[in-house]
């Protein structure tokens, strides 16, 4: 498969996953802000600031917004032009990328992505402020499920599908890990008073990962921050847990090697294996304490290195960027 096409498919899947995860994040953030006693004043920060940390970076946010609250954060994550990873930006990128490889996507998948975009641009941005984020986020999630369903139902399990699977699960692993990380640090900041356990916030975390019901089936009796974060990091069967996602990443790379779409024993495979070893090691040990933060940090770094290794060994990073001026020349080619 063409290196450029492989990379583009990988990024389509990443961007779609990212948009969906931000939509879910926002919905739960809104729910948490409405219910808890943190709905206004200083308490609002407890809900909205972690959202910015999970979704992007605080410094960039503060460059254009005074503070994180129920107006600025939803805007930043949905339509914010100052945010290169806003939901709108992610979908726009996914759509432009899909257009550039549409010969490799089943028509239904391209139509699904294009329609999601066409629906999105019909959405008046001010509705976010007026009606809240829920209808918007629900639309995004539904589009995402639809596209994913089309991918699963109509794509041959070839290299293209594997690269999309790889992108989707690597992105999801990172998102879940950052979710837990942000909650950990929020807890560390706020639990000076050890008696007040912010269970409300931790349950919201399960909502973020659409994990609440799954979690209750596994471990309804012990609703504690540790058990929740362990579930999201290490559960081997929940499709949004970091352990599950990294398993898919490793398996996708393995399948790509097996179908000769990657050179034998490539660096990304080696890295994915060690990531899995880290997760398995952690599962054998008691969970909790300060080493958890360190573990998550190392795991996130590993995800980044898998992405970089894919760029070097497989996507031929040297030519990944469209040369400046190509678009201008392309638009001048006579098609008479």
């Amino acid at each position: 498969m063409l290196a450029r096409v492989a990379q583009t498919l990988y990024w389509i899947a990443r961007d779609l996953e990212r948009a969906e995860s931000f939509a879910r994040l926002l919905e739960v953030g809104q729910a948490a802000a409405l219910e808890g006693d943190s709905s206004n004043g200083a308490g609002g920060r407890l809900v909205w600031e972690p959202l910015v940390e999970i979704a992007g970076d605080m410094d960039r946010f503060l460059a254009t917004h005074r503070r994180a609250d129920e107006r600025s954060v939803p805007w930043f994550l949905t339509f914010g032009r100052d945010n290169p990873d806003s939901i709108v930006a992610c979908l726009n990128r996914a759509r432009e990328n899909a257009r550039s490889v549409r010969d490799r996507l089943p028509t239904e998948v391209w139509e699904g992505i294009n329609d999601a975009w066409l629906d999105l641009i019909e959405w008046p941005p001010e509705r976010i402020t007026r009606d809240g984020v829920y209808p918007f986020c629900q639309g995004i999630r539904r589009s995402s499920y639809l596209i994913l369903g089309l991918v699963e139902q109509s794509m041959r399990r070839d290299e293209g599908w594997q690269f999309m699977r790889l992108g989707r699960f690597l992105e999801r692993a990172e998102r879940s890990a950052r979710l837990v990380q942000a909650s950990q640090s929020a807890q560390a900041r706020n639990s000076l008073d050890e008696d007040v356990l912010d269970l409300h916030g931790w349950r919201a975390l399960l909502g973020d990962a659409s994990a609440h019901e799954a979690y209750l089936q596994v471990d309804a009796s012990a609703l504690s921050p540790e058990s929740i974060s362990r579930f999201l990091m290490l559960d081997p069967r929940f499709p949004r847990s970091v352990a599950f996602c990294l398993g898919e990443v490793e398996s996708a790379i393995g399948d790509l090697v097996a179908m000769d779409a990657m050179a034998p024993n490539p660096a990304p495979l080696v890295l994915a294996r060690t990531a899995r070893d880290m997760v398995e090691g952690a599962a054998r040990k008691p969970w909790g304490g300060p080493e958890v933060a360190d573990f998550i940090e190392r795991l996130l770094a590993r995800c980044t290195s898998i992405d970089l290794a894919l760029g070097d060994s497989c996507f031929l990073a040297a030519y990944e960027r469209t040369p400046i001026g190509q678009h201008a020349q392309a638009s001048r080619q006579a098609q008479n």
Partner: peptide, 13 residues
């Protein structure tokens, strides 16, 4: 193809 910026890109794909 010259790429997606071309008017006939749909046809190429």
């Amino acid at each position: 193809t010259p790429g997606p910026a071309n008017a006939a890109y749909y046809e190429h794909a």
